[in-house]
């Protein structure tokens, strides 16, 4: 139920973001979701694609430093309190969130939350026990694609 996320190191300069995205687009790889964490000087580009192994290879061959990590996606209703209710569950279970990002799916009236947990397996257990919906890659594809 975990998703494979790729993270890339980028310098924070104009144009730096385009090159890796073009490199995988050229191979017909679609990006399901993407987020950028940055400082004035560098950034970490995180993305989820279905063909992550192929994408990882493309990045490595292109000279980027890339790291693969497991993340967990949850969908909630895209309305006030949707995110807060999910976070309350995680907080009550004292699960450590290393970082998270979110995006909304207007069409389905839903928001997808992507979490990087210290212990993703335990996090999935807690989420399921509390009736939250953990999104798998194929499902994410249907939502986004």
């Amino acid at each position: 139920m975990k998703l494979q996320q790729l993270s890339l190191f980028l310098e924070n300069r104009p144009g730096q973001l385009g090159a890796p995205l073009e490199a995988i687009a050229a191979e017909g790889i679609n990006i399901l979701t993407l987020s950028l964490a940055d400082t004035a000087q560098f950034g970490i580009l995180r993305l989820i694609v279905r063909e992550w192994e192929q994408a990882k290879q493309i990045f490595e061959q292109g000279g980027w430093v890339v790291k693969q990590t497991e993340v967990v996606a949850v969908d909630v209703l895209d309305r006030p309190g949707g995110l807060a209710s999910a976070l309350a569950v995680l907080e009550a279970a004292e699960l450590n969130i290393e970082y998270m990002y979110a995006f909304s799916l207007r069409r389905d009236d839903k928001a997808i939350l992507i979490f990087r947990f210290e212990d993703p397996d335990r996090a999935i257990e807690v989420l399921l026990e509390n009736g939250l919906h953990v999104v798998e890659t194929e499902e994410l594809m249907r939502h986004v694609g």
Partner: peptide, 14 residues
């Protein structure tokens, strides 16, 4: 940057 020192976590990088 090298793979050995890269982390996807901003706090670790800082």
């Amino acid at each position: 940057m090298r793979p050995e020192i890269f982390s996807d976590r901003m706090d670790r990088m800082q």
